[in-house]
Computed example of a mutant assay.
Amino acid sequence: MVSASLIAARAAQHTQLIRQIHTAKRDLGLDDDTYRLTLARFAAGKTSSKECSIAELQAVIEHFHESGWPRPGGQARKPLSPRQKKMWALWQTLADQGKVRNRRMVGLLAWIAGQTDNQVQRLEWLTPAQEHTLIESLKAWAER
């Protein structure tokens, strides 16, 4: 027989994991469709976090961490290289011009993934040639 305190602890953990998932959804800038597809992928087809088991919720959170959402305790973020800073500055310029909707890093990374043949997910994975091409693309976009 499972004690009432164990049931309460599991319920509290479930609620906490759901809160973390909703925070990650907001921080990563996920739209509702993308969020629900992610849940379905890691939670056996379930599209509501309330329906997920604790293990399924933990799998979704781990995916969010692997997608760039910071882990608790905050791993130190690497400083941006000069080329990465240039891309970031151009992205902010585009946001100021109203040409991009998501001015956060997750928006820039999504754009980069769409622009690169190998769908690069992180700035540090870009080659120097890719960095150069992306910077020139951002400059041309800003000038239009």
Rank of each mutant, 00 (worst) to 15 (best):
M1H: 10
V2K: 00
S5Y: 08
S5T: 07
L6C: 07
I7F: 04
I7G: 02
I7C: 02
A8F: 01
A8T: 01
A9K: 15
A9D: 09
A9T: 09
A9Y: 09
A9L: 15
R10S: 05
A11L: 10
H14W: 10
H14F: 10
T15L: 06
T15Q: 08
T15D: 08
Q16R: 15
L17D: 00
L17T: 00
R19P: 05
R19D: 03
A24G: 08
K25P: 04
K25Q: 02
D27V: 05
L28Q: 09
G29A: 04
G29Y: 01
L30V: 04
D31N: 15
R36W: 08
L39W: 04
L39G: 07
A40H: 13
R41P: 05
F42Y: 15
A43P: 14
A43R: 13
A44T: 13
K46T: 09
T47Q: 12
S48V: 11
K50W: 10
C52T: 09
S53P: 13
I54G: 02
A55N: 10
E56S: 05
E56C: 02
E56T: 06
Q58M: 03
Q58H: 02
V60H: 07
I61L: 02
H63F: 14
H63N: 11
H65G: 00
E66W: 05
E66F: 06
W69K: 03
P70R: 02
P70Y: 02
P70C: 05
P72A: 04
P72W: 00
G73D: 00
G73R: 00
G74M: 04
G74W: 00
Q75K: 15
A76P: 06
A76I: 07
R77N: 00
L80H: 09
S81Q: 12
R83N: 05
R83G: 00
R83Y: 01
R83D: 05
R83P: 01
Q84N: 14
K85I: 11
K85V: 13
M87Q: 06
M87T: 06
M87N: 06
A89N: 12
A89Y: 08
L90M: 08
W91F: 08
W91E: 05
Q92K: 12
Q92H: 12
T93P: 14
T93K: 15
L94Y: 13
L94N: 11
D96S: 14
Q97C: 15
Q97R: 15
Q97Y: 14
G98W: 14
G98R: 13
V100R: 05
V100W: 09
R101T: 13
N102T: 04
R103E: 07
R103S: 12
R103M: 06
R103D: 06
R104I: 08
M105C: 09
M105G: 04
V106R: 08
G107Q: 13
L108M: 15
L108T: 04
L109M: 09
A110Y: 06
I112V: 15
A113L: 11
A113I: 10
A113E: 08
Q115M: 09
Q115C: 09
D117I: 02
N118G: 04
N118R: 14
N118E: 10
Q119R: 06
V120T: 03
V120C: 02
Q121K: 12
Q121N: 04
Q121Y: 00
R122S: 11
L123D: 03
E124W: 15
E124S: 15
W125A: 13
T127G: 01
P128K: 13
A129D: 13
Q130C: 05
Q130D: 02
E131G: 13
H132D: 14
L134I: 09
L134W: 03
I135L: 15
S137V: 02
A140I: 10
R144Q: 07
